[in-house]
Amino acid sequence: MLFLGDGSSFATGALAYQYRPLTEGASDVRVILQVLLDGLPATCVLDTGAPYVILAPYLAPHLGIDPANALGQARVLHRGISYHGGLHRLALGFPAGQGESLTVEATAFVPEQNAAEAWGDLPSFLGMAGCLERLRFALDPGSDAFYFGPLGED
C-alpha cells in the first residue's frame, strides 16, 4: 500500500479516521480511530504522548477483563487525573478499510470501575509505549486515512 524507497512495504492497510474535538467547543482536535479491542469495536484516540492502550472504564465489563489477572495495582496519570487500575495484555486490531487488517498484542491500562465517573464519556486512548511503538503508521490529512503496517522484523 505504501512503500519505502527500497521497495519494501511501509504500510499494508489503512483505515479512515475522524478529526474532531472530544468535547463540544473544544479547540484541541484529535485523531479518532475505530479499532478492535479484544474483538470489540471501539472508538480510540490516537495519543502518542500517552503510554499503553488506556481503556475507557465502561468498556471493561464488555471485554470480560478480570482485575485479578492484572499486573498488580498501577496508577496512571491521564489528562490530569490519577487513575488506579491494572495492566493487562489484549489484542488490538486495526481493521482495514483498504489493504490488510492487522492485530497486535499490546499492553492496556484498565482503570478501576469506580473511575467511570471521572472518566466520563471519553473514548479509549492508543498510546505509544506498549501499543503503537512497534508499528509503522502514517496519517494522510488529505483523505483522513491512517496507514499502518508491521515492522519488517515482526
Binding site: Q34, G97, T103
Partner: peptide, 21 residues
Amino acid sequence: LAPPRVIRSDLPPEPGLAANV
C-alpha cells in the same frame, strides 16, 4: 510490559467497520 507483538498482519479488510466510520 513487553513490546507490542504483531499477531497477524495478513487479515482481510473489514468493510463493515469502515462503514461505521
